[in-house]
């Protein structure tokens, strides 16, 4: 004997619940999170360092959390900007999840932070599936990666609120076809804005900060076509009701996560996030 039970549950529902809670908790304290996705070596750390430095000059309170499989190199680079920086080592895990991020922010994120930049693990596949509670998701690609990157990684570019091209100073040297790149982006994410930047020459530096600040001030964010939650299908409510302890505040650990904090003269205050996310 056996029986078939209709479940109709989204597999990523728990992450989405955790992401929603984190987004609300951040909003309640006046912080906006920016999730940066790119391949390894795309130059997102160099760009982010320049943006953090500029934020300091503009008097915008920013912080950055950077996730890598190993090494603290990125945190050391970003910390040169003077902004509070936290390195998360994923020990091999290819992406960040919302509950993991919430845990790392709890007790670390300085209270005055208005913009939190999350530098996701360098990977254009896995991080794309995980909402981290960000209000602005940015997919980056360097000109050296080729014009067809958005077509090869449609989920990463298709779900972005903003696309940033890096290393634009090398475009000529690598014969980068800007028009083809824009066409490919438009194909997977109609209407999304594309920014051209070079951390080396300073081209476009500050635009990312401008866009993030606009979100902070309540500006509209581009809504990608692919961003519809669980597109289509008229799924009914889950057959099994969610219990009070199901899917909330429940963190999945896939391997250990080490955390190292970099003080760099910035006293880290201890304001925890609201209890909802701890």
């Amino acid at each position: 004997m056996c029986r078939v039970v209709d479940l109709q549950q989204a597999v990523l529902a728990r992450n989405e619940d955790a992401a929603r809670e984190l987004r609300e908790a951040l909003a309640a304290r006046g912080t906006v999170a920016v999730n940066l996705l790119s391949s390894p070596g795309s130059g997102k750390t160099a760009l982010l360092e320049a943006e953090l430095l500029l934020a300091g000059r503009r008097g915008t309170a920013v912080a950055a959390l950077t996730a890598d499989l190993a090494t603290e190199n990125d945190a050391l680079r970003l910390a040169r900007s003077g902004a509070p920086v936290k390195q998360v080592l994923t020990d091999g895990l290819c992406h960040l999840e919302a509950a993991t991020l919430a845990r790392h922010l709890d007790g670390w994120l300085p209270e005055e932070t208005r913009l939190l930049f999350v530098e996701n693990v360098g990977n254009l596949v896995c991080p794309a599936s995980y909402d981290l509670g960000e209000s602005l998701r940015v997919a980056l690609a360097s000109v050296t990666e080729g014009e067809d990157k958005p077509l090869k990684y449609p989920t990463a570019f298709g779900l972005a609120n903003l696309v940033v091209v890096t290393k634009a100073d090398l475009a000529e040297a690598v014969d980068f076809d800007e028009q083809a790149f824009l066409t490919h982006v438009e194909r997977v994410n109609p209407g999304v804005e594309v920014l051209f930047t070079s951390a080396r020459t300073g081209q476009g530096v500050g635009l990312l900060l401008d866009r993030a600040t606009a979100v902070l001030e309540g500006g509209a964010v581009h809504r990608p076509v692919m961003g519809v939650p669980s597109a289509g299908h008229h799924h009914g409510p889950p057959a099994a009701p969610h219990g009070p302890d199901q899917g909330h505040g429940h963190a999945h650990e896939h391997g250990h996560t080490h955390t190292h904090e970099h003080g760099h003269g910035h006293p880290h205050r201890e304001p925890a996030l609201p209890p909802a996310v701890s």
Partner: peptide, 20 residues
């Protein structure tokens, strides 16, 4: 592309489970 609506294709959904 401004009015495109994605109807299906983003599903990652447990539909049913067969229990003994």
């Amino acid at each position: 592309g401004a009015a495109t609506e994605l109807l299906t294709g983003r599903e990652l959904q447990i539909r049913s489970v067969r229990w003994a």
